[in-house]
């Protein structure tokens, strides 16, 4: 017994090092498993608060561009409204399959990263505003990402500029589906993979979100086709998509609470369990 204590006292530094090393290793590995909620996120009281303070200062510098973007969006929405025959019926317009989201939360990006391979955003609204993991985040130009973790007042978002994000998308013209990924190279471009070669595509075609996920409603803008390549092994298209969004400059975003989300998730769960 005495010897055990002696050993511990003698090597206390080394043992402390090994203990801390194993804790941090555990945290590192745990953060890479995709479907577990992370322990270490910037959606917490301290870092969220600090980022909010920093953002309050930074906001003043791009007030003008944010205002312009909002005015442009208003103009676009107004033009859609004026084109419809009966402007009150616009809500029923796409209501065939209840894909219309029932609620949208406005939030602000308080921290944005785009210079590493796994980029995350921090938003200043959280579970108190009804935000849950796996909700879609968009802004006026297109999609931004998917909610990853939430705390009472803050939430983190897996940006589409994250090599681990994978979003269902389609070509607007021909309805061919594919997966949207990022190759980690340029902040202006993402890649659409697994599009069958049957699809007739051309440079400049628009890519929108597909209807196969519960996260995003159908037909939200993503970008336009910039370059088309054919994968030698799989004979699927790999398409370079130029984003509508400037991911390096994000202000207000909208979080989509899908109406049928709970129901769909429960249904899929019961189907899987059986």
């Amino acid at each position: 017994m005495q010897q055990i204590f002696n050993f511990i006292f003698k090597n206390s530094n080394r043992l402390l090092f090994l203990l801390l090393l194993s804790i941090s290793f555990f945290l590192t590995i745990q953060s890479h498993s995709f479907h577990k909620s992370k322990v270490i996120t910037s959606a917490n009281f301290v870092s969220g608060g600090v980022y909010e303070q920093i953002n309050e200062v930074r906001e003043y510098f791009n007030l003008q561009s944010q205002n312009e973007a909002l005015a442009l969006e208003n103009a676009r929405l107004k033009s859609i409204l004026f084109k419809t025959v009966d402007s009150t019926s616009i809500l029923k317009f796409k209501n065939l399959k209840n894909t219309l989201p029932d609620d949208i939360v406005v939030s602000k990006v308080i921290h944005n990263s785009y210079n590493v391979h796994e980029n995350f955003l921090t938003l200043n609204s959280g579970s108190l505003q009804g935000i849950k993991p796996d909700m879609g985040v968009v802004n006026n130009l297109g999609i931004v990402g998917i909610i990853d973790n939430t705390s009472p007042n803050y939430s983190t978002v897996i940006s589409i500029l994250n090599v681990k994000s994978q979003i269902n998308a389609k070509i607007k013209k021909s309805n061919h589906f594919g997966s949207l990924i990022w190759n980690g190279k340029s902040t202006g471009f993402v890649q659409l993979i697994d599009v069958p070669r049957l699809a007739a595509i051309r440079k400049g075609d628009t890519i929108v979100t597909g209807g196969q996920s519960v996260i995003f409603p159908e037909n939200i803008n993503i970008g336009t086709i910039d370059k088309i390549e054919i994968d030698d092994q799989t004979h699927y298209y790999t398409i370079n998509v130029k984003l509508f969004n400037d991911m390096t400059n994000l202000g207000h975003v909208y979080i989509i609470k899908s109406k049928n989300r709970e129901e769909l998730i429960n249904l899929e769960k019961t189907t899987k369990d059986e």
Binding site: S42, N44, V116, T156
Partner: peptide, 8 residues
């Protein structure tokens, strides 16, 4: 890590 979302 908390601030950069980088795990550990």
């Amino acid at each position: 890590d908390f601030f950069l979302n980088s795990g550990g």
